[in-house]
Design a binder for these strands. Structure first.
Lengths: 225, 225
DNA sequence: CTGTGATCTTAACCATTTCTTAACCGTTTG
DNA sequence: CAAACGGTTAAGAAATGGTTAAGATCACAG
C-alpha cells in the first residue's frame, strides 16, 4: 500500500520544512499548503489521510478550515492553546492537538495513533467481503469463487478489494492507479488495463462469468447481475 | 422516516426516566441501558444514531465503553467533569459533553447539533441529483429517468450533471465547453450542439419530455415545468 | 551474490465507443 | 431579407477498452 498522505498546513516555512523532512523520512507522503484558502482548493481535488493544521493562517484561519475537513483526522499544531480552546478545537472536529514547540517523537506517535484508530475502525467493519459467488477473506488474504480458491497477485487483489468494498460504485481509473502503484510516479493506464484483464480471466476460469464492468472513460465497477 | 434511535446509558433511574420522557416527547426512539456491559451487549445487535452516556456506570465505566462506540456520536452526561477530563473525553471520541444538572433545552440543542453534523456530512458526499423524473447517482455514475436506466457518454453525463447541479441557472456555452473538453484546446460549438442533441434524444426516449431548454445566444438550462 | 520464477510494465494490435466536424434546414434576430 | 443561431444527421477521426506477448523488475531461495 502506498504511504499515507499527510498535508502540512502552515505558513511558517521553517516549521513546514522541518515537518516535511520528519514525515518524509518516516515514509509518509507529504503535501504542503500555506493558507486556509489553499487547503480548501486542494480539498476539491483529493483528500489526505491526515492533516497537520496550524491555526494562524493567512486567508482562512485554521478554525474556519476545520469544519471542512470532516471525516479526515486533523491534528492541530499551534503555539497558544489554552484549555478552553482545546475543548473548542476538539468539539470543532480536531482529532488531537500539539503545542509548539513540539517534540518530533511525540508528534509521530500522535499521528500513528490516528492511523491506528482508522485501521481499527476499518478492520472492525469487515474481515471478509462478499459479492455474489466471490468471497474475499481479508485476514487470510484469500479469494474464493464458487468455493474454488483463486490465486491473485497483489495488484489484482488490491483492485478486486477496492471494487468489492464499494460494490455499487464506479471506481475511477485514477483512484485505482493511485491505490495500486506504490512508488510508480505516473503509472500508465496500459498497466491497469492488463491487471484488470488478468483479474477477469482468473475469475472467469472459476465461474464463467465476468464480474467486472467497464464504465467508458471513467473506470470500473462490479457488474450488477 | 423512523425517528432517530438514542440510547440512554445511566444507572440512575430517575435521571434516565427524565431523559426518556424528554426525548420521546421530542420524537426520538429511546432505548435504555444501565451498565457498561449492557451497552456492549446491545451493540452486538444493533447500532443507535446517538448515545447519551453517563460516566459512572456499573460493569464498565463510560470511559471504557467510549472507544467501542467509534463512529456513533456520544454525548457524555456526568456530574463532575473538570477541564482536563473534558479534553480526555473528547480525545477519547466523545462528540460533546453535558454536566449534571443539565438544562433540557440545552441538551436537546446539543443532540440536534450532532444530527445536523451527520446530515451535513451525508449531504456533502451526497451523491445524487434529482430533477423532476431524472435521478443522477454520482457514485454509481448512473442516470435514471422514470426508473429506466439511461446510458450516457462521459460528455453527455458531464453536461447533464452541470445543468442539474444548477437547475435554475442558465449555463453558458463557454462554461459547458470548458468543463467538457478538458484537453481539447478549442472545442467548437458545433460539437456541443451535437452532444446536447444526443443527450436530449436519450432523455426523450425514456420520458417523452424535453428537459433541456436553449437560451438564445447564451447557453442552456433545465426546462422549468 | 546470483539465478529463477513470479509479477509488473510497456507496447502493439484490433474492436468498439465516443467525439468532432461539416452539411443541411428551420427559426430567431436585427 | 440576411445573418446568426439552434437542431439534426451522417461520416470520418480520435479515444478507450480488451487482449496478447515480450522485456523489465522484484522477491526470494540457494
Amino acid at each position: 500500500m502506498a504511504g499515507k498522505q499527510i498535508w502540512i498546513v502552515d505558513d511558517d516555512i521553517y516549521i513546514g520544512d522541518l515537518l516535511e523532512e520528519l514525515l518524509t523520512r518516516e515514509g509518509y507522503q507529504v503535501c504542503r499548503a500555506y493558507s486556509g484558502t489553499e487547503v480548501l482548493l486542494l480539498l476539491s481535488n483529493t483528500k489526505p489521510d491526515l492533516v497537520l493544521l496550524d491555526l494562524m493562517l493567512p486567508g482562512r484561519s485554521g478554525e474556519e478550515v476545520l469544519p471542512k475537513l470532516v471525516g479526515i483526522p486533523v491534528i492541530v499544531i499551534s503555539a497558544k492553546i489554552d484549555t478552553d480552546s482545546k475543548v473548542d478545537l476538539l468539539l470543532g472536529g480536531a482529532a488531537d492537538y500539539v503545542t509548539k514547540p513540539f517534540d518530533s517523537k511525540e508528534l509521530l506517535a500522535r499521528i500513528a495513533v490516528q492511523f491506528r484508530k482508522i485501521e481499527a475502525r476499518e478492520k472492525e467493519n469487515s474481515t471478509s467481503l462478499v459479492f455474489e459467488e466471490i468471497t474475499m477473506d481479508l485476514e487470510k488474504h484469500q479469494v474464493m469463487v464458487y468455493g474454488d480458491s483463486v490465486k491473485l497477485t497483489r495488484t489484482e487483489y488490491a483492485i478486486l478489494k477496492l471494487l468489492m468494498q464499494n460494490p455499487t460504485q464506479v471506481i475511477t481509473k485514477s483512484v485505482l492507479l493511485d491505490r495500486i502503484s506504490e512508488d510508480t510516479p505516473d503509472c500508465l493506464e496500459s498497466s491497469l488495463k492488463v491487471h484488470v484483464s488478468n483479474l477477469r480471466k482468473k475469475l472467469r476460469e472459476s465461474s464463467g462469468k465476468d464480474y467486472i464492468e467497464a464504465v467508458w472513460g471513467i473506470g470500473f465497477k462490479m457488474a450488477n447481475a
